[in-house]
Design a protein around this nucleic acid. Structure first.
Lengths: 149, 149
DNA sequence: CTTGACCTTACCACTGTGGGAAGGTTCAGA
DNA sequence: TCTGAACCTTCCCACAGTGGTAAGGTCAAG
């Protein structure tokens, strides 16, 4: 099976399959005489594993660890669980940050008429409520604690 | 006030202040004879506005629009509200995605003993549940619907 | 006049993904 | 046998947002 079919079957784009190989997340696949990548059903299994892990929000680095645990017959399930629990914690932190943002914005939006006049409590709120930057886990939207209303 | 003090006062790092200026989010500040950036209290106000907006999860592009609305005396509050409501929707989408991930992972983690033995329902779950990629709004962790358990 | 704390610009890094160019391969159909 | 479409290859660039760091200029206090 070549890369296109592997991509279609696994749900991981060909672009990303090559990328994962380049960064060592996937071992180099075998090649045809002409240099085309060839994937076995075993490779596909790994690919699907990665795709699933990605869809659960794991970073590529976490997935690297997951894959290596997955392929390690002498693993401790405790190591897997620790990794997962940490990831859950991070998810919850981000959910909390974003929920706070949403709540603040919702409160502001509720008081805004949203008409053709310029008076806008939303802009007023943003321009007067100070919001010191604060630490977050990663990039994305959550970059600071949401402003309190 | 020079950039360092402006950064301390506004909570936006000097690095980012320069960046925002470079991409046109902030107008070029005035300069001292020696080329140092100088910020007025007015500039600081804008800086704080941006910082607050950032902390509410707006992208720089959304903030660009917010700032221009903020400074437009002929704005319609409806335009502001639309922008904000859209942003709230996106936040909710991401919260939902991440909550789904968390739920799936929590369910998997609950069934895992987390001991020294290799048997691990988490890894089993990831390796057998297929999760087709699906659309998300932006990058970050949320990249696909969470796998159903 | 030196020293340390500041400032300047200009790069490179990260994460994860996509786009595209320039070229080679494979296969079906005329 | 030739041709064209649909693949494949590698390589570079882009995105968002932030940080680091290097090489240099400036300013104020001692």
């Amino acid at each position: 099976m070549n890369i296109g079919e592997a991509a279609r079957t696994s749900g991981v784009s060909a672009k990303m399959i090559r990328h994962y190989e380049a960064i060592g997340l996937l071992p180099p696949s075998s090649r045809s005489d002409s240099g085309y990548r060839i994937y076995s059903s075993n490779d596909l299994h790994t690919l699907r594993f990665i795709g699933t892990a990605r869809s659960l929000g794991f970073t590529l680095d976490e997935i690297r660890q997951l894959v290596s645990l997955w392929q390690d017959r002498n693993r401790s399930s405790g190591d897997v669980k620790t990794l997962v629990v940490n990831h859950i914690t991070q998810l919850e932190q981000k959910i909390a940050e974003m929920s706070a943002m949403r709540d603040t914005l919702r409160a502001l939006a509720e008081t805004c008429d949203g008409n053709a006049r310029p008076d806008c409590p939303i802009l007023h709120g943003i321009s007067t409520h100070c919001a010191p930057a604060s630490g977050s886990i990663n990039s994305s939207r959550p970059g600071a604690k949401a402003v309190a209303t």
